[in-house]
């Protein structure tokens, strides 16, 4: 399954980005193929309104099974993710991506 992270950098040691809509990067890890990919989301900084839904739309195209993030998406983005059937785990805002993945594996993250 593909797992997406909101992150401030592009490596396993990068800090998570607690925000969803305005996250700087998405990192996607496929635990079946061990593939790790990065997507830049920084162009969303220039968006006044609707950053959440737009980011959610991008995430949808990456087609992950679940998302690990910090604060959890706002109402609009949550709607999009729900329609897209992406499960959301929150509370990893202050961790590195690696720590966030391990916390998820140990069932330490809350489902949104």
């Amino acid at each position: 399954m593909k797992i997406a992270f909101t992150a401030k950098g592009t490596t396993w040691d990068s800090m998570m980005d607690p925000r969803f809509g305005r996250t700087e990067f998405f990192l996607v890890y496929d635990d079946e193929t061990d593939e790790f990919t990065q997507f830049d989301n920084r162009d969303v900084e220039g968006v006044a309104h609707g950053a959440g839904p737009q980011t959610a739309q991008k995430l949808f195209e990456l087609n992950p099974g679940l998302l690990i993030t910090g604060n959890g998406p706002g109402g609009n983005a949550a709607t999009v993710l729900e329609r897209a059937g992406i499960k959301i785990y929150i509370g990893a805002g202050e961790m590195t991506v690696k720590e966030a993945y391990e916390a998820y594996k140990k069932n330490e993250l809350k489902e949104f």
Binding site: H49, G50, P53, F60, N76, T79, V80, A84
Partner: peptide, 18 residues
């Protein structure tokens, strides 16, 4: 121009407040 309409796969979503 306001990102209030989004196409998601086979669905169109409208965000009224935007």
């Amino acid at each position: 121009n306001f990102h209030a309409v989004i196409q998601l796969g086979t669905q169109i979503l409208v965000f009224p407040e935007l």
